[in-house]
Computed example of a mutant assay.
Amino acid sequence: METPAPTTTTTNSRRKRRRTRSSKNKEELENQRMTHITVERNRRKQMNQYLAALRSLMPPSYVQRGDQASIIGGAIDFVKELEQLLQSMEAHKRTTQQPQHDAYSSPFAEFFTFPQFSTRATQCNSNQQQPMAAAAATAESVADIEVTMVESHANLKILSKKQPRQLLKLVAGLQGLRLVVQHLNVTAMNEMALYSISVKVEEECHLSTVDEIAAAVNQMLGRIQEETGF
């Protein structure tokens, strides 16, 4: 009769391997946790350094508190003010360099890249044949309008002739479309006004594309012109 093989040594060996694996797993988890803590600490340190640098570049009046939201919000306001100043300086520079502007030129012309509506295109093509698509896009333009959009935030550039209470009516109209005005810059030159407007598109807004927003603004300005008799 054969003697059964001893199992004690085998069982002990398996237990040791399990304890070794368990110990290694705990060490790996602890190393991962410490690595994550270190990475997060470095990220926060770098973020604080960037925020401090950003705050140092702004006048104190733009940052009332030192928290992250206040610094970023102040930076946005400061950049918007710089944008308005740049627009005014560029427009003034072009006006002084070219004092005589024809009907199709404007000191604000270069501020528009791909406008959805353009009065200049309409005027330039009024005595020329133009493709049907281009004619449809510009035939009813009452202002130069360019809209860009990132997620739920849209930026509007509007170049229009100055009219009484136009800005007030424009802001009220945007609010009615559920486009909440967050930042607004106005640059005026001669009889023209350039509006740079940042809006937040609310969930209740039925306008979902840049073309729809531009068309709605164009219609709004058309109504304002009719009301003022221009």
Score class of each variant (00 low, 15 high):
R65C: 04
E151M: 04
N25V: 04
S208P: 02
V199N: 00
Q123K: 10
E227S: 10
T95Y: 03
A193C: 12
T96A: 09
K200F: 02
D144W: 04
L85N: 15
D67E: 11
E212A: 10
S56I: 04
E81M: 11
R43S: 10
G173Q: 01
V201D: 00
F117H: 15
E28T: 11
E227K: 06
T119D: 00
P115F: 00
T96R: 03
M132L: 12
A52P: 02
S208G: 05
L168F: 05
Q68C: 11
L156H: 00
P4D: 07
E140F: 08
V199G: 00
A139S: 15
F108I: 11
S13A: 13
S198T: 15
L57F: 00
L86G: 14
M220H: 06
T8P: 00
I72E: 07
S22D: 12
T138C: 07
Y195A: 01
H101N: 11
R14N: 13
I158H: 02
M189P: 00
K26H: 11
G176C: 04
N155T: 14
R41L: 06
L207I: 10
K200G: 07
S198E: 12
P99S: 05
R65I: 02
N190V: 04
R178P: 02
P60L: 04
M89T: 15
R65V: 03
T9D: 14
Q84R: 13
V63C: 09
R94T: 09
E226K: 09
V39I: 14
M149G: 03
Q225D: 14
N42T: 13
A135H: 14
Q219W: 03
S23L: 03
L57V: 10
A69Q: 13
S70N: 14
E2N: 08
A136E: 14
L170N: 01
S106N: 13
K157Q: 10
L51P: 01
S152A: 08
I71G: 01
M1L: 08
R44D: 12
G73K: 11
D144E: 14
L168H: 08
L177K: 07
H183L: 04
E40V: 10
S23R: 07
A188H: 04
R17L: 10
P60W: 00
T11G: 00
N12I: 09
E140G: 04
L54A: 09
S160A: 08
E191G: 02
T11W: 02
N31F: 03
E30I: 07
S61Q: 13
V171Q: 08
L168S: 12
L159P: 01
D102S: 09
L168V: 13
N12L: 11
M47L: 08
Q87C: 10
